[in-house]
Design a protein around this nucleic acid. Structure first.
Lengths: 336, 336
DNA sequence: AAGGACGATGTTCACGGTAACATTCCTTGC
DNA sequence: GCAAGGAATGTTACCGTGAACATCGTCCTT
């Protein structure tokens, strides 16, 4: 093991520059009131020795770590990954250190991840909760640090940063309605997923609002494969399917095509997310675009302000955008 | 700022358990030769106070951090993301702390990421190099820590952990050849990508070995959109296209379909990676499956052994696997 | 010219652990 | 019954930094 090769310390720099270690510290921390020539001597010494300050010692002395824990879902979807990268980048820009852990939705896995993060003295958390269970575990562990929640709808009030799921669902559903569709089916995401629930609720409300019959939902797990399998459970009278994400829409279109159904002539299909592949499905998919990067950046801005004690930004849900492609046709198009 | 809320320290635990702080330390570090009742008193005290040890202090005293830096590509492809998650998980299992940074391929971005990691006193690095430039910058910064390289072929000898790209390319090319294809075109990945280069080289060698004419390569950037655009540059006499990844294959199939070409009857298409979507493209894509998770785990095992001074595992390239679906037909299938 | 104020820098201590060494306590053998 | 030795535990000295306070010199004021 013996890995003892410690680099130069502040004292080494101080000795070389003929100052005290405190002066070195002041230079590094940008204090004013250092004579220019002194500062230069110190900087030269730092450069010559290739000195880097020891963050362990620093954080021991200050009592701060600058570490922000990030809990990401274990199965990396396009959306979560995009937000994750935005969060990582924004945190580093803010001078904070992202500590990323992925967790499955098993309780033990979530606990291990949170335990790991708290053991690392995180000063804040970003929870990208795939499921409600993460929230439960987190609550039960007595969270003492500011926490931003992503992918949870508005569940956590002003700590939630999200895209308006209800609004997004309404966008596609209204589009289908305008094209004459009345028998619309929903393929929802996993039962324990908050976003899946929000989209499903939006579907339910939409159908009620327009006095339409709700068709029994099929459930998928976000994967293309589950969309493929969900096709078997589609109501034969349905003229359109609202899939809770683009991957499931892709699988569903595949299954429909295998069954001899043409999309969109025989069946219209819409998705949710606008993954890069959606523009190139056959047919290209009509869907709802969410700005995942913006969500990630907003979450970091929220935490940054909270840690600094300044006024936090508004966390109103972001508005998604309808992306029209070719997977929707007016109802009865095949007959023409 | 003033965030001073420090938790209980070892001394607090020691006082409560009526022992010295050193005994607490020994209990925590699993030393032998502690009387069971003493150990229990200490554990009870820890539990009662909710004590967590301060890692900053620990690493200051030991001179070790247990932090392993991970450099991930900025644009998260399926493969890179899968490996990344495997690496993250394996590192945590090994008691190490993954410190993940994403970097674009701009030199400045790479430098910033490496500077960040070294400033964090990483003890080892996992470099998932999207491009050769990362390697250059890394070399020029004088790396002093053990480093595992992913996604770089065998460029770095036994520090490289990879899937056999040449072998994978041969798998699909031989499949096309066996189906009678002789006019095979390649849509390669970005010029600065090492893996793209390896696949392109494999194509070149394959064609030479079989005495076939090389068709001029088109270049894409891994995205479906770039595959779509690459279709315009496909040789009209080509009967099959080997795309360097599945996403580009998807875009290309879309473009072919727009142009009235049927896949696979008029044109056979193969991809590389086997992303979850590939099974549900229209037609389902014949491709090469790489075990991204295994690659990530192997990289961590390599570093773990190196840090521990034990015998490192073999880093022979892993063998990929041909996945046969429906995007390839015998040449001339349309004529029948 | 003396005193004060302030700017620049130095000194000391604390942060919370671990390592090395010191001490105490018990057991064991004679 | 006592010495010896090992097991269990305590004491002390760091690790490298930042904060608080101390010091020194200089310039300004009166």
């Amino acid at each position: 093991m013996g890995r003892g090769a410690r680099g130069p310390s502040m004292h080494d720099v101080a000795a070389l520059a003929h100052v005290s270690h405190q002066t070195v510290s002041r230079v590094l921390n940008g204090f004013e009131g250092i004579r220019p020539d002194t500062r230069q001597r110190v900087l030269d010494a730092i450069d010559e020795l290739g000195y880097r300050r020891n963050l362990a010692a620093r954080s021991l002395a200050t009592g701060r770590t600058g570490v922000v824990g990030v809990i990401a879902p274990d199965n990396p979807t396009f959306g979560a990954t995009s937000s994750l990268y935005a969060v990582e980048h924004a945190l580093r820009d803010a001078g904070l250190q992202p500590l990323i852990t992925a967790t499955a939705s098993r309780r033990s896995s979530i606990e291990a991840a949170l335990e790991f993060l708290h053991g690392r003295s995180v000063e804040a958390l970003v929870i990208m909760a795939p499921s409600r269970k993460v929230l439960e575990v987190h609550d039960s562990m007595g969270a003492e640090v500011p926490t931003a929640y992503l992918l949870t709808g508005e569940e956590r009030g002003r700590w939630s940063v999200s895209v308006d799921q209800q609004g997004g669902a309404d966008l596609v559903l209204e589009h289908l309605y305008a094209q004459g569709h009345r028998r619309i089916q929903h393929v929802r995401g996993p039962l324990d997923s908050i976003e899946a629930q929000l989209r499903a609720d939006a579907y339910t409300r939409f159908m009620a609002r327009h006095g339409l019959a709700r068709l029994r939902m099929a459930e998928g797990d976000w994967s293309p494969q589950s969309g493929f399998e969900a096709y078997r459970r589609i109501d034969p009278t349905a003229t359109a399917v609202f899939c809770a994400n683009d991957q499931m829409a892709m699988g569903l279109i595949h299954a429909a095509s295998d069954a001899g159904m043409k999309v969109p002539e025989d069946l219209s299909v819409v998705g949710f997310d606008d993954i890069p592949e959606s523009a190139h499905m056959l047919p290209p998919l009509t869907t709802v675009k969410q700005d995942f990067r913006a969500v990630g950046m907003l979450a970091v801005a929220l935490l940054e302000a909270t840690l600094a004690g300044t006024e936090p930004p508004s966390t109103e849900p972001l508005e998604p955008e309808l992306v029209l492609r070719s997977s929707v046709a007016p109802v009865g198009a095949a007959a023409r």
